[in-house]
Simulated assay, not measured.
Amino acid sequence: MGAEALRLLVVSTPVGALGSGRGGGVELTLASLVAGLLERGHHLTVLAADGSRLPAGCERARLWSCPGVDQPSWQHQRRDSPVVMPAQALLPRLWQRAVGSQAGFDALINLAYDWLPFWLTPQLHTPLLHLVSMGSVAEVMDAVIADVARWDQRRLAFHTRAQADDFELSEAPVLVGNGFDLEAYGFCAAPEPLLGWVGRIAPEKGLEDAARAAALLGRRLAVWGLVEDPAYAAAVEAAVPAGTVDWRGFLPTSELQAELGRCAALLNTPKWNEAFGNVVVEAMACGVPVVAYRRGGPGELVQPGINGLLVPPDDVPALAAAVADAEGLDRQSCRAWVERTCSRAAFAERLERWLLSALGRSPA
């Protein structure tokens, strides 16, 4: 490590306990952030929902937990929805603990895409920083993020430029990407004739497009993810020939990568502006090329002809037509691209530069 060790409190998402899968990509980001910064010599405490467990590689961090009711996710609200706080809500309890403990830390890092922590930013004595986890989905969130940017944009970091471009910023954004423990992903050189799709089973993820593309090709589509919307999942399955969708459930990384690596290609079909696209990188780490819509974070991660192909958003025939060319790409090139750009060590170094800049410190 090239910098003085920092005492950091990482406040997790108020949607689900760590390890449940309900927090989506934030859980993976938290694991990479905590493990990577621990490896660089910093001291971390994680504050999360009751029932949470620290991911592998994060065992040296402290874990604090709070009881409470999950916060409604903004990605399932209307753009003009107001801020909602359920009775016995987890979100204010997390931040009551964080605010009360702030004196013991050099900085607080918020991973939740919620109004309250952004609003609190100028109120705290200890610097509160935000790794913004989504693009623009609600007017009230756009406004509070813009307020923080005007007050001190150093407090904000984003995963990709496509995500940052959603917001009203006063200067060039800090982009940190994301990071992965690449030892947890095995390379598979000899796949099966199987297409894959990974994500929460919810409308904004666009599973129906991947299923339709697989049906056009007469191929089986393996689907991994937490079923957030059972009615939507049933409608997707009913719209394609029986046997097209092969439901594999939500799996921890160790099990997911072993199955995902056997896919000939991954289809990525979000209907919204994904902030990053963790599953895209997870597939590439296994050697699986990706066919994705040219939208949001995946549109920056997929390098056409190297690790996958991009097609116009919502164009299912184009999605299906690109599969054959994607399957012909060098799978080792997919893995090599991830090793160059998305390792956990590289992510931690980018995070450290952001933290030190926001705190007005310099590396030793």
Rank of each mutant, 00 (worst) to 15 (best):
P191I: 06
E192G: 00
L194Q: 05
L195T: 05
L195D: 03
L195H: 01
G196I: 01
G196E: 03
W197Y: 03
W197V: 07
G199A: 07
G199F: 03
G199M: 06
R200L: 05
R200M: 08
P203T: 05
E204A: 00
E204Y: 14
E204I: 10
K205W: 09
G206C: 12
L207K: 13
L207G: 09
E208L: 11
E208K: 06
D209W: 13
D209L: 13
A211R: 14
A214Q: 07
A215W: 03
A215G: 09
L217S: 00
G218L: 04
R220T: 15
R220F: 02
L221V: 11
L221T: 14
V223E: 02
V223T: 02
V223K: 11
V223W: 04
V223S: 04
G225W: 02
G225P: 12
L226T: 08
E228D: 14
E228H: 14
E228I: 14
D229E: 12
D229Q: 08
D229L: 02
A233E: 07
A233Y: 01
A234I: 13
A234G: 11
V236P: 10
E237R: 15
V240S: 10
P241M: 07
P241V: 11
G243N: 11
V245I: 10
V245N: 10
D246K: 01
D246A: 12
W247C: 13
R248F: 03
R248W: 01
G249N: 13
G249F: 00
F250C: 10
L251H: 08
P252T: 14
E255Q: 15
L256W: 11
Q257W: 07
A258G: 14
A258N: 07
R262Q: 15
R262E: 11
R262C: 06
C263N: 06
